[in-house]
Simulated assay, not measured.
Amino acid sequence: MDLKSTLLVVGGSVCSFKLLNTVVRFLPTPEPAHNKMWKWRNTVTSLAHSSLTGAWAVSCLYCQPKMLEDLISSYSLLSHCLVAVSTGYFINDFLDVSLNQSLKQSREVLLHHSTVLSCFTLAMTSRLYLGFAVVSLLIEINSVFLHIRQVLLLLGQGNRTGPAEPCTSVTYSLTSWLNLGTLLVFRICTTGWMTRWLASHREHIPRFVFMIGTTGLSLISTMNMVLLYRLLRADFLTNPHNTSKNH
């Protein structure tokens, strides 16, 4: 796929996710989420992206298993389109968050999105490291449950009556465990595997690419550990009164 086609896919993705966000605006909103309309729309849009790209990433690796053996030069149209579509989402979400939240509230999300966009842009324009980008999108499998959890919180199903009391929603409790399990496997383990791969292939990677990759993985690994701590504290250790959206 050439640069023009890539830009068309990215642009089409931006427009599609913006359209989805707009459609959600006009659909009936559950009553508990009425006072958090923007967060509801943003979370539903993010859930759609996670569901799509998580399954798509698995499909890419299933159809081309040799991609795991060569994350640098392995290429397929399916993987290129996946990275382009995901890039469009991150551009749309970056703009959406920037326009609707203060910098203090959104700085972690914006920093995460900026890092991802830098790495994905490099992969799309060079047609290299697409395998690396596809593996990184396995993290979206956890994001599915992370966003479902947020939806349940917006619906008021995640509150507890006391520090030692179980969650009032069985669905929320199950989602919390699935969220924790997939976070450990698809965030922590995947990021760790990517870090190990990057270190072991340092001699095959240009210095500036290695620096971008190292910086990005260091940042995301740190954010993953912070996310793990917050989720453990919120869902398994203490009684939360305020739980914010995590990416």
Rank of each mutant, 00 (worst) to 15 (best):
K36G: 10
V10A: 02
K39W: 04
D2W: 04
W38R: 09
P28C: 01
T6H: 00
L3N: 04
E31P: 05
S13L: 02
W40N: 02
F26R: 10
H34Y: 08
P28H: 00
W38G: 07
L8Q: 10
K4Q: 11
V14G: 09
K18I: 14
K18H: 10
H34K: 14
P32E: 07
G12Y: 04
L27F: 02
W38D: 12
S13V: 00
P28F: 04
E31Q: 14
P32A: 05
R25Q: 13
M1R: 01
W38Y: 11
G11C: 03
L20C: 15
L7S: 01
W38L: 13
L20M: 15
P30C: 09
K39I: 11
P32H: 10
V9C: 03
N21T: 11
W40T: 10
S5P: 04
G11F: 00
T6L: 00
S5A: 13
F26C: 09
F17L: 07
K18M: 12
P32N: 09
S16N: 08
L19Q: 08
S13N: 03
V10C: 02
D2Q: 09
L3I: 10
T22E: 11
F17N: 02
L8T: 10
F17I: 05
F17A: 01
R25C: 13
V14E: 06
M37Y: 12
S16H: 04
C15L: 15
P30D: 06
F17M: 05
T29W: 01
S16C: 14
L8Y: 08
N35S: 14
E31D: 10
G11L: 05
V9S: 01
C15W: 10
K18Q: 12
L7M: 06
N35M: 09
T6I: 11
L7G: 03
G11V: 04
V23K: 07
N21Y: 06
K18S: 13
N21L: 04
C15M: 13
W40Y: 09
V14P: 07
V24C: 07
M37E: 15
L19T: 15
P32L: 08
L7R: 00
P30T: 12
F17R: 00
C15N: 05
R25G: 11
T6P: 05
T29A: 13
D2A: 07
F26G: 12
D2F: 05
T29P: 04
G12N: 03
K36T: 13
F26T: 11
C15I: 13
K4T: 11
K39C: 10
K4I: 12
K4C: 04
L20Q: 05
M1Q: 05
L19A: 15
L19K: 05
V10K: 00
C15A: 15
P32M: 06
S5Y: 09
T22I: 08
G11Y: 00
F17V: 11
N35W: 06
L20S: 12
K4D: 09
F26S: 11
W38E: 15
G11E: 02
V9N: 01
D2H: 07
P32W: 02
W38A: 11
P30E: 06
F17H: 03
S16F: 11
F17C: 03
F26W: 08
V24F: 03
V23Q: 03
D2L: 02
T29L: 10
F26K: 06
N35C: 12
R25D: 14
K39E: 15
G11H: 02
W40H: 10
T22Q: 08
G12C: 01
D2I: 07
L27E: 01
K4Y: 07
G12M: 07
W38T: 14
K18E: 12
H34I: 12
